[in-house]
Structure formats: C-alpha cells, structure tokens
Design a protein around this nucleic acid. Structure first.
Lengths: 229, 229
DNA sequence: TAAATAGTGTCTATGAGACATTATGTA
DNA sequence: TACATAATGTCTCATAGACACTATTTA
C-alpha cells in the first residue's frame, strides 16, 4: 500500500482577520449558511485547492490564505498584513470529517475595515468585538483559534512592527498609543510611550506626513511608517 | 459537490529533533530508503493517521507528532520537549503528490541522545551537526524546515525555559552557558551569565542537586531545574 | 604551590516607569 | 484667555555588559 492510498484529511485555511475600530479590537466573522454549525458565526476560510496531478498540485498554502482573504474581504494581500498562525488538527474538530486547518491571522488598518463588507461575496460578514465573543457560540474550535491569534498579536506588539498595521497609513503617536492600550488592556504613559518612538523618528523610520486631526486642543504630529527595505 | 469530494492533500508530520552533543548543535536525520530522494537524508516523520469515519477520525495532530517521535527515537514525549513549529505547504514540495507537512521540533537532553539509535526502528538514523548541513543534499524542503526550527530555538532561548531542555537533568551554570554559546554562536561573560540565574536560584527554581563534574580546577555547583506547576 | 575556573564585586551605559513641566494648539 | 493635550525633562530603579578581583578545587 503506497502512501498515496492512505486516507487523507481535508485541509482548510482559516483567517483571523483583526482590526481596531471604535477603540475596540475586532475580528471578522461570517455567518455559516450550511451544516454543521449552520447559523453560527465562524472564521472566514475554506479548503485548500489541491491538484490531483503531480505536475499540478494546486495552490500553495500561503496562496490559499491570500485567496481566501481576497474573496472574503475584498482586500488584496498587499494592503494587509498576513502571517501563518498555527495549525489545528484535533480529531473531531469538524463533526463531518477529518479537517486539519492552517490558521492565519491578518491585520487590517482601521481605514480599510469599512470596505470589507462591500467587497466580500459573503453577505453576512461582521466585525465583532473580541471581548464580547465569550458569550457567543462560535463554530468549530474557532474561539480557541481567535484566542491564539490575539495572544500572538499581543506578544509581538513589543518586538515587531505589527502595531503599525493597526493604524491608518498616517497616524499620530497618541493614536499608536491607543492601539497598544486596546491590545494589551493597559494604558501607557504618554511621555514614556513617545520616547520609545523617538529613535524611529530620528532614524527616519517614522517620517512626518501631511494631514491633521480634528482636536479640542493641541494636535499631534502626523507620521508615516517607512518600512525599511 | 460536497466538501467531502474535493481532492485532498496528504498530511504529514516532520520532526526536527535537536540536541547538543560534543559541543555541537545536532539534528537527527534518517536515510531515505524509498523514492523520491532515496538515499538522501531527511527529517524523521510520517503521515498523519486519518480515519474514514466521522466517529473515528484518527489521531490528533499532536498525537501523530508524539507517535513519530517515539517510533523514530524511542523517546517518550514525557522525556522530550515537543512543540509545533510551522506548516509547510508549497505545491510541489513532494514530487509524488501534494503533501502538506506540519513540522514540530523536539529538544533532547544530551544524556538521552545516545539512546536514540537503539530505540528507533529506523536503522539509518544519525545526529548531524547543524552547521555542516549546508554541504549535504537533504530531501524535500527539509533544509528550510531545519533552519526555521533553529531560528525558533535561538529566538526563544532568552525568554523561555527551553535552554534547560538541552542540558542533562542536573547541570552546572557553566554548562548552561555553553548551551547558549552553541545555539547563539556568541560566548557570554561567565560572571554576567551567572547573575542572570541568581534569581532563579534564590527562587528555588534552580535547586542544588547531587553530583559532581570531573574538572581540572574548581568544580561548579550542580543544579536541577524545578519546573513550576 | 601553580593553574584554572567558579563565583562575586564594581562601574557604566541603557532603558523603562513615575511624574513634573513646558509648549502649542483649539474653543 | 482658559483649557486640553502634545511633547520634553527629570529622577529613580532595574538590568546588561565590561572587567577586576576573590575563592576554591585539582594536579
């Protein structure tokens, strides 16, 4: 019996698409229209397209994630941060059949978030506050997947650039500080927080950008993040 | 057409089993006895056992990793640190057919490493120095997988307890320092290094253990790592 | 006793956090 | 002008690194 003949699992890609809108960390969920979990909210995702032929084996795993992202949000992968998260493969996690899912997470800038519903071919897609998911019934093990994703984002906040994926293209340091506060749940001291980014400003990693915020007092300087090549 | 009827990929589990022996970071490889890459060295691994029935969907992904670890090294998962690494799923990475592999990495204490060859059912298994792999032809994308694993270990060294998985059950601070030096490639100052673990010693996370090293000068204190429950 | 390494002490630079102060815009 | 918030400054403390020094064991 060749390896070819063993039973195979279905492999899907699930997306934890996160954004910050109205001072809340939100995740994009779609309403399931079929069994199982019909009517429940679930992560957007789908099966990896696999070819039958050795020469055409189908799409790459990353390509499947990008395709699903585009299909379900209308956002191209160039506008969104996308990274593999973890693979969930417990037996029984899908009652129909064996499904192993490779989860990805995506970070959507708040200014792009409103575009999502128009672009998707899924009619019932909504941004839910992560903090309110506890009360909801989610499909499959999607609650656990979201938890892992949020933990990952929290963990990477301090040693990576992902915070810049959760503010608009141009932003102020106070806006960036709000991102930190929302993700970590802790307010940061405005003065100390700014100092953390002073070097980036001197480096030119953050450069001044045109634009202005409507404020009741002194407006903050607007910056743009220049990703180093 | 139901989801059931789409073509499915094979899903395998590959293991990057690492240890430190003779002052070298080493990875366990097995010689392939079948095509493709017959005769090449490859990561130990195998296909996830998938059930055909909704009620019996087969083994969990983690269980597959533990099973392979036991089969190929003879080491139970209780004696070895095992963690999911990353999922590699490019089309064409296996020329025969579409295979998506979930890679795990395992850390084996140096005193257990010699037991490995006896226990495995794979006759041709050997520990290779990671630094010499560049010259070798490895099967599939296994070189890339090893690289990701080593990067992961390097990255986690400073903020996790994994260094203790690469020394014997009882060890000295200088021995631990050698682990850091070998993994990171940088020698650490002995005095400063020790200070990093002074708090753990005061906490009781590290406790004195019986045992002694054969040395040419003052022998170091032997400790045991007490994992907090 | 000599050699070697374990382990401690000291100094400095750096960064985080608490908090005060100044600067600059809006209403 | 009053107010609010941005932005800067100051102080303290914890930590990392460089390096000198002491302690202890072996040969």
């Amino acid at each position: 019996m060749s390896a070819r003949d063993y039973p195979r699992p279905s492999v899907s890609v699930d997306l934890v698409v996160l954004t910050i809108v109205d001072a809340q960390l939100r995740v994009l969920l779609v309403k399931r229209k079929v069994y199982p979990f019909k009517g429940s909210w679930a992560l957007p995702g789908g099966f990896v397209r696999v070819g039958e032929l050795p020469d055409d084996q189908g799409e790459d795993l990353d390509a499947a994630a990008k395709r699903e992202l585009e299909e379900e949000t209308g956002l191209g992968p160039d506008r969104v941060y996308l990274e593999q998260l973890f693979t969930f493969g417990k037996a029984g996690r899908d009652p129909r059949m064996r499904v192993i899912t490779v989860a990805y997470y995506a970070l959507v800038r708040p200014d792009l978030a409103p575009l999502v519903r128009a672009g998707g071919d899924v009619s019932d897609a909504e941004w839910f506050e992560v903090s309110t998911l506890k009360k909801m019934e989610l499909a499959f093990d999607h609650r656990e997947i979201i938890e892992v994703a949020v933990d990952r984002v929290r963990g990477k906040l301090d040693y990576s650039d992902i915070a810049f994926e959760l503010v608009p293209m141009t932003f102020t340091i106070p806006e960036l500080r709000h991102v930190y506060a929302i993700v970590t749940g802790k307010e940061m001291d405005p003065g100390n927080f700014r100092r953390r980014f002073n070097r980036m400003i001197e480096n030119g990693v953050l450069e001044k950008a045109p634009g202005k915020r409507i404020t009741v007092s002194k407006p903050a300087t607007v910056y743009r993040f220049k990703r180093l090549a």
